[in-house]
């Protein structure tokens, strides 16, 4: 449903889309049923001359069934939704599969710095590739990310991955993703971060393995002196 409009480009995007579809089906059905009954009553019981309304207290168990049955139905469907929601959540946020590489993402008012590990596959070495507003990753590789902020709250959001995580100054927040589709996609900041909040777009470029190797070669490795301790902690003193 969502993937018709927004590409599904990460390993867990399909799972989240399924959850959304499931919730749509369940709530959609009950919502429609409730609205149909509601409008049916309005039409059917419209005031007519000489017809007095019924006197129903709704206190006897027999009458209360009309509310009790939907009540238990709501409970059952809530449990179903919770089951799948928690399952999805645990997959995305509570597990950390083995990483092929780790990237560091540093947000500030109002730009992103992406630190790529470079050919040696390790962060904080001389061959790190630091780019502003552009994150390069390889398709079908599992990435861990480290989120840091230099000033206020930001949020790292990649809609095509169905991924979002707030960034808090003073902390390093870790997570993971595995791109499954090559191409260029939006990265958004989804937590208001001041007057430049709307001007903080970035792009994530998912390369095929060959392209990725070529891109990595084309980048001049940053010098080791650029990687100061301050930057490792996201600019916190």
């Amino acid at each position: 449903m969502i993937s018709k409009y927004v590409e599904s480009a990460s390993s867990f995007a399909g799972q989240i889309d399924f959850l959304i579809l499931l919730v749509t089906a369940i709530t959609g059905f009950w919502w429609l049923l409730a609205e149909v009954i509601f409008f049916y009553f309005i039409v059917k019981y419209n005031a007519k001359d000489g017809v007095k309304a019924q006197y129903i207290a709704g206190e006897s168990p027999k009458e209360k069934r009309w509310v009790a049955i939907p009540h238990y139905a709501t409970l059952i469907f809530d449990v179903t939704i919770v089951f799948f929601a928690v399952q999805t959540w645990q997959e995305v946020k509570q597990t950390m599969p083995q990483a092929d590489a780790t990237v560091r993402i540093i947000a500030q008012q109002w730009a992103w710095t992406f630190v790529h590990p470079g050919p040696d596959g390790k962060l904080d070495t001389a061959d790190d590739i630091r780019l502003v507003d552009e994150l390069h990753v390889e398709k079908d590789k599992t990435y861990h990310f480290e989120l840091q902020s230099r000033d206020v709250l930001h949020s790292f959001s990649v809609p095509v991955f169905r991924l979002k995580q707030d960034i808090i100054p003073g902390r390093t927040i870790r997570g993971w993703f595995k791109p499954t589709m090559s191409g260029g996609f939006d990265i958004q900041c989804t937590e208001i971060c001041g007057i430049g909040h709307g001007l903080m777009p970035a792009r994530i470029i998912v390369h095929t393995p060959e392209d990725f190797a070529a891109w990595q070669l084309s980048q001049t490795p940053a010098t080791a002196s650029l990687t100061t301790p301050t930057e490792q902690t996201g600019g916190m003193k």
Binding site: I2, Q15, I16, L19, I20, V23, T24, I26, T27, D78, I81, V82, F84, A85, V86, Q87, T88, W89, E91, V92, K93, P159, R162, L163, K164
Partner: peptide, 12 residues
């Protein structure tokens, strides 16, 4: 609201 209360869907 159910979409948003379901933690997995709220990520998106």
């Amino acid at each position: 609201g159910i979409f948003l209360g379901a933690s997995g869907a709220d990520i998106y």
